[in-house]
Design a binder for these strands. Sequence first.
DNA 1: TATTGTTATACTCTATAACTATA
DNA 2: TATAGTTATAGAGTATAACAATA
Lengths: 164, 164
Amino acid sequence: MLRTAPVLSAVEFSAERPQARRVERVDSRFLESLMGYNARRASLAIIERFLREMAVYELRPVDFSVMSLVVHNPGITSSQLCAALGLLPPNLVVMLNALQKRKLIERLPHPHDRRAIGLYPSGAGITLMLSAEKTAARLEGEATAKLTTAEAKTLLRLLRKIYL
Amino acid sequence: MLRTAPVLSAVEFSAERPQARRVERVDSRFLESLMGYNARRASLAIIERFLREMAVYELRPVDFSVMSLVVHNPGITSSQLCAALGLLPPNLVVMLNALQKRKLIERLPHPHDRRAIGLYPSGAGITLMLSAEKTAARLEGEATAKLTTAEAKTLLRLLRKIYL
DNA sequence: TATTGTTATACTCTATAACTATA
DNA sequence: TATAGTTATAGAGTATAACAATA
């Protein structure tokens, strides 16, 4: 039933320590046994590529996420966006200002709650996201190129089980 | 063979857009179909817990990784650490200074290369990591509590296929 | 009294340029 | 000329406090 690499054992270090030695090959087995370590490495690898390819749209991953939700949920509010993406309101405001300045979104009064503001994609915003989401779908294939279709599906399902 | 949620279709937005509507339930299906999105959410969920539980040792995830590699690879150099963990040398120096100040590591001359410096865990460093790695192993079980043993093993393997 | 959106600001993380000592 | 380690600093990302308007 042992899944993780063995942790340090005290006896492993009871003998006198050599005063100077050279490490030929780095032993990363313990770290590599940790889910968090692997999940982070994998997400960084994917997001790195995403960052490069989305640069043509001038969209960082977080901008892409925000725009995608606005396009698929016209009228969504800031607080809904924050909840869905785990963002903090003060940080979202800055992003929305930038997106509005680029005329990718519009802010319209909320129909029932005068405190809230509905976010809508502009025509340009929709056009941009049509391309950007196509690119994202292509990157999806590249990111999972080393996996079979079944494996990719499994990976997605298991990742979701971790954080939901 | 379609794995990702359908991207935006132009026709989806050809009808006139309502001037104001309320979003009852946020549709995140497209984002949730992306591997990067799920990998990031999962890694954040795990690392968040890791951060909390490792606070008693005053170790952030990166400190834990560095200390773990030093303990398992006494004599490892900064450049080896940077390569193994994807860190930049200037940032590592600051961390090592802090760890040395806490008397968790020692820096000794490299046996063959006078430019390099070997990193060694102190007795206190080893003692600390004995506990910290036990905690990490426990957290590993908690992070994958919703998965069967076989699923956790599969997840680890598939994540590694993504970034290696 | 709680929530939405906002401003200003602080803190942390990551990245770049330039330097030294040595290979 | 290239590499290991270092310093200083810039930039991006994330977090906290406090506020006005509305529920």
